[in-house]
Design a binder for these strands. Structure first.
Lengths: 194, 194
DNA sequence: ATTACCCGCATCACCATTGTCGCGATTTTA
DNA sequence: TAAAATCGCGACAATGGTGATGCGGGTAAT
């Protein structure tokens, strides 16, 4: 950690990170050149701030994972009523994931650090589902690991599915409606209810 | 279409296609060299049979799409009882998709031809869901497009989800059990039923 | 057995990407 | 305003993948 970056340098770093997220979301194999262009910067400047592609991706991962964890904690999944917590965490995650489509969606961005965070989140999710099951929100005989996978799949589908990917902006504006749809489908499926 | 290939040449072609499917499933950006190595062949031999990477991928697509269509037709989705047809097509598709993980899973393998086939399959699926809804298998107010997306997502999840991808062999052996799980979740979700 | 074909191998040219460097011009900071 | 940091730009070497070619030894077909 040298001295703090100068104002213009900090601006470049942010521009590069945001551009990288956009470009890599479209094409995970995009070149540094393309990223630099989107950032309105010359390629050498990118290399000045990030030694290599890996360093750039890890920097992305750091920001993304932090935001994701915050948005999960914000849902208070350990205390709020299960249905409320589920809806809330779903909407939050939709918003974050629509922003970090590449970093949070592609396994390429995996570092030793992120693996830890993932396992934490997965463990928390399983714990939450167990509580939800005890409180009658899930079927008593439901396979919780499968349930977790189904939930993840529904979230991913809402984000990426349906032919072309959703417009991130659109996702963020409809996050609550989408969350309702996801939770509803998660719990009751698409068959007739009642 | 020149004259038929000699026996050893045909063997090489098959080895290359199978190797390509395996290697590309692991890493969609793998080099021709890696594919050749897995095929037990020198890289120049690959180029002898497939002018460029694109040609190779299109050849893969041709085989895969044909098998997929056959497996869908085999389910008789237009005449069989909806629940039966749904279970059957699910098991069939699981088997095919576990084999062609790359070609059928990655949009990279998209050619003008495959786009047509996809839209046919999608239209057929929607038609089937409409019938299923009329016959009471789906909720009367269910959004059929969303239902289709949910179904696709569940199938993908069963194949690729759960941390590491499933062992293709294992998927094929448990295709019926997996299909039951998928259809059940699709129709009733994971919440309490009754 | 002869012919036609195929493969492995070595080699070549070509291209895109990556990563580094130095310089002059510009912007920020103190 | 002076010093320090940053950027754009051009250049460079290194790397790795791509596609083509020709040759000699081997293999399938007739």
């Amino acid at each position: 950690m040298g001295r703090p970056l100068r104002a213009d340098a900090a601006r470049s770093v942010r521009a590069i990170l945001e551009a990288a997220e956009r470009v890599l979301a479209e094409d995970p194999g995009a070149s540094m050149e393309q990223i630099a262009e989107q950032a309105g910067v010359v390629r050498t400047t990118v290399h000045r701030r990030f030694a290599n592609r890996q360093a750039l991706i890890e920097a992305l991962a750091a920001s993304a994972k932090r935001q994701l964890m915050e948005s999960v904690e914000d849902a208070h999944m350990d205390t709020a009523p299960p249905l409320v917590a589920l809806h809330r965490v779903t909407a939050n995650v939709l918003r974050i994931k629509s922003f970090w489509r590449f970093t949070l969606g592609h396994p390429l961005a995996d570092t030793p650090l992120t693996a830890v965070i993932w396992s934490e989140i997965n463990a928390g999710a399983l714990e939450f589902l167990a509580r939800a099951q005890r409180e009658g929100l899930l079927a008593p005989d439901a396979d919780l690991v499968w349930a977790r996978r189904v939930y993840y799949a529904l979230v991913e589908e809402a984000l990426h599915g349906g032919g072309a990917d959703m417009d991130p902006e659109q996702v963020r504006q409809n996050a609550d409606a989408l969350a309702t749809l996801i939770v509803d489908t998660f719990l009751r499926g698409v068959g007739p209810h009642g």
